[in-house]
Design a protein around this nucleic acid. Structure first.
Lengths: 266, 266
DNA sequence: CGGGTTATTGATGGTGTTCAAGGGGTGTGG
DNA sequence: CCACACCCCTTGAACACCATCAATAACCCG
């Protein structure tokens, strides 16, 4: 119970830092807070605190413009937001929950391109169609924009365009990081890199904590890291034996952060 | 001689398509064409024909603004444009030649993030410093812009910002493609994916041709594909034995494009 | 409790790496 | 012009890491 990361009574020990609740955004978000057709004031506003969020650095007025175009969705787990090949009509910001982004080969092999969480912007596409699929890993809140509307609006809003530019560059940097992981890291290093990175991302939103919620399964991690599910499982089993981590419901507790970092040695 | 891809008398058979010279840009480029301090009219203008080039879709007037800030460089092979960790003072467009982009791990392992060729924009950085190094593979022409100047200029030039946005999204899509290659492709597929992609990129600039110039060495390919130099070498040796490719000075001739494509089966 | 899904664990084997030696081209200097 | 060094590429043999195959265990929901 004490370590439960998902339940209503989610309480985590604050170790590294001050506060650390796992869903601080849930106060602002929910079906009740949002008008069906119109804006979602509190949601866009909540973005403003977050680095790399698209609506950051916009004036109240500009946010109002965005809101008029936005439509908030709160969707159950385990279904897609969009599929690779779909006409790219919308762009989204994630307001809560998490989304898995993936590409599939015709023979069933899968590469998980990345995971999007609160504050992330998804749906940017070079072409008219999405080049990857997006699936919800859990109950997920999204702010949806019509792509064309969004383009038109951004035309006379340089700050928004610059934000968008920053978001794309940010994603690109992450993608390059991950190429190093996929191309030149061994299995244990890959898993360590993923866990540490995931921890950092959660820390930005929820504050630092030794407890890390992991909404994705072993197969998702494996497909993200270019490994098999067995290799991931064995690596984690070893770490458990060596008291490096401790499994907790819905996630993991990192017991020895330094040793985990040492695995990367970089 | 007939297949030489590098010499002064570079002539290639045009097979798939009409014309196919390997350095069509060289007419416009050279020390003589460019004032030391000022703009490079012909160079920016030449960009306009090319998709994803940053200065595409700008008016003559806007191009003039860019040119005033640009400085053209024509540099010998085998030295860096910038290093990972350097302060990111400049951004560049490649006008001729090619550049290798890479990240290094502290223990010597290397990941080649990508290669930039004529029309590509490099130096975009999320942070104040470059996150990867850029090295010239051959004699290379670059248009250099001061990053701050460029930012200021782009502030009231939406088309430029949108171009920049497209360039970043384009790079991101390529990075995601490559993640699939690194994460889920076997050795032979990786090499095939690289050769085919490289061929397509050259085709955009020089027109289609069965002859493909390869300015990078085996080690570069290996570090790009997450393989060892031996595996790359063995794969190419097999293809040579099977009459799938034919080595020519400075590059390769693809003898059986369909069979090469079939290796990817996707 | 039962059925399905997901995770773990073990045994075996393959793909690609590592280690090692030799080949081929190029440039330099005698 | 040849000899030599250097670099890059190729080829072979042995090995290691991780994948594959297979069986069981834990979990989740109905």
């Amino acid at each position: 119970m004490e370590f439960d990361l998902k339940g209503e009574s989610a309480v985590t020990e604050a170790r590294d830092d001050t506060v650390s609740t796992l869903e601080p955004l849930s106060d602002n978000i929910g079906p009740g807070t949002c008008a069906k057709t119109g804006g979602c004031r509190s949601i866009c506003a909540s973005c403003r605190d977050r680095l790399y969020a698209v609506c950051l650095a916009l004036s109240d007025e500009e946010i109002a413009g965005l809101e008029a175009l936005s439509r908030h969705l709160d969707l159950a787990a385990r279904a897609s937001v969009f599929l690779a090949g779909d006409k790219a009509r919308f762009v989204y910001t994630v307001t809560s929950g998490s989304v898995r982004l993936q590409r599939d080969l015709s023979d069933g092999r899968r590469q998980v391109i990345g995971f999007a969480m609160a504050g992330d912007f998804i749906g940017l596409s070079r072409d008219a169609n999405y080049s990857f699929s997006a699936d919800r890993l859990e109950q997920t809140g999204l702010c949806r924009f019509d792509r064309d509307d969004f383009t038109v609006l951004s035309r006379d809003r340089q700050p928004l365009l610059e934000r968008l530019q920053l978001a794309a560059t940010h994603e690109l940097t992450i993608a390059q990081d991950h190429m190093v992981v996929l191309g030149r890291r061994r299995a244990e290093e890959r898993v360590a890199a993923f866990r540490l990175r995931w921890r950092d991302r959660l820390a930005r939103i929820h504050g630092k904590s030794a407890n890390v919620a992991l909404p994705m399964g072993r197969q998702d991690m494996a497909d993200h890291l270019g490994l098999t599910i067995e290799t991931v499982s064995r690596t984690l089993a070893r770490w458990r034996r060596e008291r490096l981590i401790l499994d907790v419901p819905g996630g993991v507790r990192i017991l020895d952060l330094d040793r985990l970092r040492a695995i990367l040695a970089d």
